[in-house]
């Protein structure tokens, strides 16, 4: 009997707390607009930086509330995340899809229900969105190629460490690089290998390259971690002074590429912007009823000790 009473008291207390919550929200005059951001995988440094930028930008605007969900690199999980945003009646959806096809249907559904959709970095297979924000990997690859040609004075041997073969960013970073080097017949790419974006693989590949080739002038990594991995391999073999290392991403922070340039491990990195700040800015414009561009291409910049940060 005592037990029943105590359970009852607990239940009443719960209801009291709950109804108090309800009252509080009624008295708030202006509810903040809710922006839901469905991130495909927060466990990558580049995407973590994206989340951070968005939170920093959103913190400046008290009229909006940003909710970030993590898809754990799993299409089903990200689909459920977006469904949750839909029932929560968010005012705007920002999504960086894990893969295009599995998430196209749900994004179409959100867009059809009248919620504006901003897509970040990776596209979907439909035009049911308000704005797409992404960087141009071909352009970044081209900048890397031009930089390489400049520092090599138009002559030299290059090893290229690919991002995951078959992935669009890797293909485009390669395409731009090759395009820029087309004008320099004395520059030769002597070795290409798939490093799957991983620092560990960058190191392994470079160990093989060092065994096989006596002279390498420059290593081009499709991202900074692989370029840094290659640098570590060269350092182990005491050959890091003869080789230049360049990478892409240029993340801030202790593990990022910008720090690696300052440490003189990389001679340059090319910033692949996350678009986090721009996404929030675009979202604010959409919520204010302003017109926004349908495709927003983000610029890049070179980070090297001679060109400044």
């Amino acid at each position: 009997m005592k037990k029943t009473i105590s359970i009852l008291i607990l239940f009443v207390a719960m209801i009291a707390v709950f109804s108090a919550c309800g009252k509080k929200s009624e008295t708030e005059k202006v509810r903040p607009k809710v922006i839901g951001f469905s991130q495909c995988n927060s466990a990558e440094p580049w995407r973590e930086a994206m989340n951070q930028q968005m939170q920093n930008e959103a913190a400046k605007h008290p009229e909006i509330k940003l909710i970030i969900s993590d898809g754990n690199q799993d299409n089903s999980k990200q689909l459920a995340d977006v469904e949750n945003f839909l029932v929560q009646e968010v005012d705007l959806l920002i999504i960086s899809p894990n893969e295009a096809q599995p998430l196209t249907a749900i994004v179409e559904k959100v867009h059809k229900s009248g919620i504006p959709v901003v897509i970040l970095d990776r596209k979907i297979m439909s035009d049911a969105y308000t704005s797409f924000i992404g960087a141009d990997n071909v352009l970044i690859g081209e900048m890397a190629g031009k930089y390489a040609a400049k520092v090599l004075n138009g002559k030299g041997k290059i090893a290229e460490i690919w991002g995951l073969k078959g992935s669009t960013p890797a293909l485009e970073r390669h395409e731009g690089f090759v395009k820029a080097l087309a004008d320099y017949p004395d520059i030769e790419v002597i070795y290409e290998q798939d490093g799957a974006w991983l620092r560990r693989r960058g190191r392994e590949i470079m160990e093989n390259v060092l065994q096989r080739f006596e002279k390498i002038d420059l290593v081009y990594g499709h991202n900074d971690p692989m370029a840094i991995g290659a640098y570590l391999a060269a350092k182990n073999a005491n050959r890091e002074k003869d080789i230049l290392f360049i990478g892409i991403d240029g993340l801030p922070g202790a593990e990022g590429g910008i720090q690696a340039v300052e440490n003189k491990e990389l001679s340059a990195t090319f910033v692949y912007p996350t678009g986090g700040k721009e996404a929030i800015e675009t979202a604010l414009k959409i919520l204010a009823g302003e017109k926004v561009e349908r495709n927003i291409t983000l610029g890049t910049r070179t980070v090297s000790l001679d060109e400044g940060k």
Binding site: F18, R31, V87, Q88, E89
Partner: peptide, 18 residues
């Protein structure tokens, strides 16, 4: 009890869609 509340004051957890 702990369901978030939508702008219209309905319990989100109990919505049919959810």
């Amino acid at each position: 009890t702990f369901s978030p509340i939508s702008n219209k004051g309905t319990l989100i957890f109990l919505k049919l869609d959810n």
